[in-house]
Design a protein around this nucleic acid. Structure first.
Lengths: 107, 107
DNA sequence: TTCGTTAATCGTCGATAGACGATTAACCAA
DNA sequence: TTGGTTAATCGTCTATCGACGATTAACGAA
């Protein structure tokens, strides 16, 4: 039972919903902080959006900081590294990564 | 309601279980094809493993080809590209992606 | 043909996810 | 203080997930 696989699976689960992907795109497109505008943008109830934000926060993909009456959400893409590494391992099984020429060809 | 986000979410969902990650690692480590050995390796019931394989197949992450009494499973990592791209976009927010200039995309 | 092997499918069950409205808590401004 | 705004939490409901044993289907070998 790999502990690492559980962590990676949790990260993948955090990304496994269109509304959460949408939220991440919004955060990416917003230079500063954004609060309740998220609710309007995703078109779901406030409580539902709050739950999605909680899931993303628990996974570490975003951070939330209290800023007056609002909350400042920000991306924390570094948390996705284990998942990105896993996908990279699958995608480039025996070849070198981007921009690095092959050493040997597979017969 | 981005159609693309649904596709990416489906891919993430396919990776959102430790048993499925384990299966993918097994396929990666196996040069040729592998059949029922998967069942023994993941330690779950045969029907459960079959269901996980089905999910991976529906997502396009693996392929299954009948080979005599067994089935030859193989990785199809290219299917994960949309998910990998999404993560890459988040990880390198303002910088260009590896060797490729930005493309404006409409959601 | 019959037998043994392999994998998919079926039926069932408990656990989890996702959505909603309603409520609560925290904060700033009158 | 009171009132307005914002976000988290609660309670409830339905839908989906994940696991299992049992059964079925397909195939090769005897």
């Amino acid at each position: 039972m790999s502990n690492r696989d559980i962590e990676i699976a949790e990260l993948a689960k955090a990304l496994a919903h269109p509304a959460r992907l949408r939220i991440l795109r919004l955060l990416l497109a917003t230079p500063g902080c954004i609060g309740g505008d998220i609710v309007g943008a995703v078109g779901l109830a406030q409580s539902t959006v709050s739950e999605h934000l909680r899931i993303l926060k628990v996974a570490g993909v975003i951070t939330g900081e209290i800023s007056g009456p609002r909350i400042c959400y920000a991306l924390n893409p570094a948390a996705l590294q284990p998942l990105a590494d896993f996908i990279g391992t699958l995608t480039a099984p025996s070849a070198a990564v981007c921009c690095v020429p092959d050493e040997k060809e597979i017969s």
